[in-house]
Structure formats: C-alpha cells, structure tokens
Design a protein around this nucleic acid. Structure first.
Lengths: 200, 200
DNA sequence: GGCTGCCGATTGACTGGTCAATCAACGAAG
DNA sequence: CTTCGTTGATTGACCAGTCAATCGGCAGCC
C-alpha cells in the first residue's frame, strides 16, 4: 500500500534526470536518456510526468521552495543583516556542496536560462531576490547599511556574485577545494557587507 | 540595385540573427526565421555561414573581443584600480545601452549558457575574468585593495554582479530607466570597491 | 489453498512533425 | 559562356509524445 516503499519509480526517474541533465544539459538529453539512466522503460517517464519539461519543473520547484524558506528563516532568526546574508549564502553554498549536480541543473537550466525555461519561473526567482532585498532594506532602516543603494540592486548583485562563483566551480573556471569553499563564502559576504556599510 | 554600398548580405543576416535570437532565443529560432527576418532566401544563410551555430559564434566573438580589448585598455590607462574597474563596468553597461539585443544574446546564449554554447567559448570568457583579476591583483600589490581576497574570486563576483543587474533589466525583474542606469553602475562599482578596500 | 477478474504499473514500437543542411537551378554581370 | 550570388524545394535525421499490449499484485470467492 502507501506504506511499503515499492522502489519509488517516480523518485528514481527524478534522480536519474538530475544526473543526465547535469551531464548533457536539458536540451541535449532525450527522454530515452532519462529512462535509460533510471533503468526504466521509455513510456514510464510519461506515466509519472506529462512532459520532459515537467520533469525539470519538478526538480526546480522542489529545490527553489527550500531556498525561499531558507531566506525567510535567515531573515527571521538572524540578529543583524550581515548575519542574515551570511546564512543565505551558507544555504546556497551548502546546497551546492550537498548536491552539485542538482544545483548545476537549477542554475544552468533555469535560473540562468531566463530566455527559455527560467521564463516560466521568473516569478519564483524574483521572489528570492525580493526576500533578500528586504533583508537589505531592513539593514538600511536600522542604520547598519548605507541608505543610498537600492535594496533590489544590492540583492541582485549579492545573488549574482554567489551564482557566478558557483558557476566558476561548476565549469572549472575556478579550481575547487573544500577550504576555498567556506573561505570564499566568507570573503564574499564580508566584502559585500563591508561595501554596504555606511560611508565612513 | 542599390549597389553603391554592396548591400552586404552577410551583415544583413548577422543583424537579423541578433534580432531573432534576442526575441526567441537561439534554440527556438529556425534558420528560416533568420532568413525571413533578413529578407533573404533560406539557402543564403548557408552561403555565408557553415551552420546555425556559426552565426552565433560570429556574433559572440565579434563582441567579446571588443570587451577583452576594453578591459586591457582600462587596465592600461586607468590611474587606480577603482577607476579601472569603473571603466570596465562602464564599457559593459554602455554595450548594453547601445545594443541591448546583442548583449541579451551574448549573455543569455553564450556567457550564461556554459553548458551548451558557452562551452565552446569557455576559454575566451575565462580570459576576461583573468584580465579583471589582474586589475584586482595589481590593486592589492599597490595597497589600494585588501590582500586577503583571491583576485579571481573578486573578479568573478564583480562580473557576476554586473551580469545579474543586466539580466534584471533584460528580463524586466528590475524596471529600467536611464537614470537608474548610470547610477546603478556607479553604486555597484563603489560598493564593491569599498568592500575591497583594506579593512579599517 | 486455488482460481478469477480487475486495475494500475510498465513496456517499447511507432507516428507525426520539426528543422538543419543540401543541392540543382536560375539569372545577372563580365 | 562562365562565374557567382541567390533561390527554395527536398532530403534525411532526430525525437517528443502516444498507445496498445503485457505484467503483477491483490481482493473476493469457492
């Protein structure tokens, strides 16, 4: 019944899709590639998903909702804006460390593909920018950040910088090591927050 | 007819391609769309270009070499790192202002599409990052910038922030106005350079 | 236990449509 | 008559999505 985990094929297909999308990119993967990778018949993919697009949709929504939640959480529990932004960055970097293939797919095929796939999700993506902007705005209101930077600009610069670093690792532009990892995150947050401090 | 300027069909096709790629994205445009937009027969595209890919290649290389030159130029003529980075940012922002469609194509289809098309040009793209990193490294050597940030990190964060802002305008995440434009560039450079200053 | 009928899960051959690339032909200029 | 820019119909490959057929578990019944 619903209890016994009957080797959840649906999940199997999603996980296979992550691997194949990460390896070949969404456009270059055939539905049969996903099925093969999952060790499942071609048609079964269509039993669980209405289209190839929907597979990617599902992967994105699943992950992005976690990010949105993490930002809200950081905003709620952080003590100052610097700490809040640090928590946001940590979540994103950790997501990459935990499942680089999934993050690669999300970034390359959705977040940075605003022309094709990202278009469908522009709203959710913008929501993340806006939540980060809110953290910045609150920081300005409390005097922790200078007031002459539009929060949305700061937010997008912040997120853009993070994503660019991740892309650097993903595509080998930057060599990756675990030390670099935490250190990079720290430097990024420090540098940007310093830049956002009131002019002295 | 109108032979005076030899009605350069090749250029005509390239310019048409910019418009169509910007409107529909590379994958969604058929070669016939380019031909139609250029008011030219389908086959002529293949007279001037060996493939659809090559059209995009040409557009990218044409523009990216200008960027590389502009960075070198900024490095050579700028007085301090802040001014140099400002000149780099100005060139990129001005490129967008001057031909938003071309920049949209370059960013969306090449620069941020490292999985598909960008792969071919990873080397040229990296070269830009490295030139910017050199500016940062020199700034550190002269004491203008703090020394504990890897130049490549700073470079990619800087470029990533710029590209994210441009993407925001391109896709309407951020409302665009000409004032915002120069101001945004200025704030971005200021904020990041402040963040890169030696800790005081 | 053994039998039957049902239903959702699973299979993969097949179809319909799309599109990049080819190529034979045309006509204007020299 | 040759050259070459130009034309657009045709070809050939590819692939998403369909669907008819099969499998397997289980409920009810004897």
């Amino acid at each position: 019944m619903a209890q016994a985990p009957p080797a959840d094929k649906r999940r199997l297909i999603l996980d296979a899709a992550i691997r194949v999308f990460a390896r070949q990119g969404f456009h270059a993967t055939r539905v049969s590639d996903i099925a093969d990778e999952a060790g499942v018949a071609y048609g079964l993919v269509y039993h669980y998903f209405s289209s190839k697009d929907e597979v990617l949709n599902e992967l994105f929504i699943e992950r992005w909702s976690l990010l949105l939640a993490a930002i809200e959480e950081a905003d709620r529990t952080g003590e100052d804006p610097r700490q809040k932004l640090g928590a946001v960055a940590r979540f994103i970097f950790d997501s990459y460390r935990h499942d680089p293939e999934l993050m690669k797919v999300i970034i390359v095929e959705v977040t940075r593909a605003a022309n094709s796939f990202g278009k469908t999700h522009l709203e959710e993506i913008r929501r993340a920018y806006e939540s980060i902007a809110k953290i910045v705005a609150d920081g300005q209101a409390s005097g922790a950040f200078r007031g002459d930077v539009a929060p949305m600009f700061a937010s997008m610069s912040f997120y853009g910088a993070i994503e660019q670093l991740l892309s650097g690792w993903i595509f080998g532009t930057i060599p990756a090591s675990d030390t670099d990892f935490d250190e990079a995150r720290d430097l990024l947050v420090t540098t940007i927050c310093d830049g956002l401090e009131p002019r002295g």
